Amino acid sequence: MAKVKKAFFCKNCGFEAPKWLGRCPSCGEWNTFTEEIIARESGSVAANAAGPLPAAKPQRVGDIRESEHRRIDVGNGEVNRVLGGGMVPGSLILVGGEPGIGKSTLSLQIALAANGLKTLYVSGEESAEQIKMRAGRIGIGNDECLIYPETLLENIVRQIGEHRPDLVVIDSIQTIYTDLLDSSAGSVSQIRECAATLLKYAKSTGTSIFIIGHITKDGSIAGPKILEHIVDVVLQFEGDSNNIYRILRGIKNRFGATFEIGVFEMLDSGLRSVDNPSEILLTHYEEPLSGIAVGASADGVRPYLIEVQALVSGAAYGTPQRSTTGYDTKRMNMLLAVLEKRVGFKLAQKDVFLNIAGGLKV
């Protein structure tokens, strides 16, 4: 019997260490190391489900035939925009965001509204009855969408191999686990192994897979950093959960640009696409108020107007406060230094507050 290998992983960033450490040398967090048992068996889950894969051979660059990637319409104009014109077959897409911001709602809308695609919605957090209630609230019907509440990766891959869907939604990767590892679901090793297995299956069969991922308290996607390296596309949901507007931003995209954004409005019937973001980003454009300026910005090929709200007042304490929302604080300090040095504004003893309206980050 092979010797059991143990290692310590940081729950915040996924850093691996041979022994327990009080402070993570990678992210600087305290008391985040947990011991996990790493035990691998021969064989792969994806290979067992998809059958024996053909062995690849080295080829010259000039001999490689370039196949045209056919973009698939996911039934949502804003998601198609962020993806670069549609979904590429065999791609692995990761969607992250705050709890309650609408990740599951958007994924279910894509699964139900996929044009002529056979979809499989795998839920590890909700029952089939809960998903049925949300589908009835969204009001989109698709007889080709299959609902499968399961958390074991072997059973999920077996069902994917049996039904052969065009699109698979995994909700979420932190709840999926494999029997090849002894650690619990959501651990660093489980997330890494499950994501790698799904990647092998997607590339070998041409099945597109949407993965929903949790985030940490600082806003980054939970789990090891290798999760973001494995997937083809990383989408981040931004916005306040108390606000009705959501922004979908592309962080990584191997098939398109990353500067496109999608704007949504959260309603009782799901997420509605907003074609003109300026209508939600401008709040006081008809009132002549001081401290408000309107500027034009562009993400991708779509320009939009943003409203900048600023307040400068005398510092009540010895050290002035500098606070920003939706803007880089260090860049604002640099601009204030330029204004004081070149223009003559006396801002050294002033409190400065800057806000970008609508929850947008520029």
Rank of each mutant, 00 (worst) to 15 (best):
V352W: 00
M133A: 10
I215H: 04
A195P: 04
V169C: 05
E144P: 07
A222S: 06
I230L: 15
R40W: 12
E193H: 14
H284T: 10
V312T: 10
R71Q: 09
V308G: 03
P277W: 00
I37S: 14
K217Y: 10
I138N: 05
Q321R: 15
E286F: 11
T283P: 07
R134Q: 07
A135I: 04
M1H: 11
K6H: 15
F259R: 09
I221M: 10
K118E: 04
A202Q: 00
R137Q: 05
S278M: 02
K118F: 06
E265Y: 07
S44R: 13
V234Q: 00
G22W: 14
G136S: 11
I176R: 03
I280E: 01
A310R: 00
F353E: 07
V88K: 01
G102R: 00
H229R: 04
F15K: 01
I72H: 04
D143P: 10
C194I: 03
V82H: 00
I147A: 01
V338C: 12
A298P: 02
V308Y: 03
G250C: 13
R134Y: 03
G28N: 09
T175A: 14
I160K: 01
Q174D: 04
Y245A: 01
G90S: 07
I212Q: 01
R137W: 06
T205K: 12
A222E: 01
D143C: 12
V168K: 02
T205M: 06
F210Q: 11
E68W: 13
S107I: 10
L339A: 14
A50K: 02
A202L: 05
C24A: 08
F210M: 15
L94K: 02
S297W: 10
V234F: 11
L199A: 10
G186V: 03
P288T: 08
Q109T: 13
E66K: 12
E238L: 05
Q59D: 11
V122D: 00
A50D: 04
R342P: 04
V4S: 12
S104N: 04
G90Q: 04
T319L: 14
R331H: 12
H284R: 15
R331Y: 15
D179H: 05
T151V: 10
K350I: 08
A196H: 07
S278E: 04
E29W: 09
A348T: 07
T105F: 08
R249L: 02
S91T: 03
A296Q: 10
K11S: 15
M133D: 07
G85F: 02
P89F: 05
L106N: 04
L267Q: 15
G318L: 11
R246D: 02
S42F: 12
S323D: 13
S290Y: 15
A135P: 05
R192A: 03
D240K: 07
T32Q: 06
V352S: 01
N333H: 15
T105E: 06
E129F: 11
L311C: 10
F259T: 13
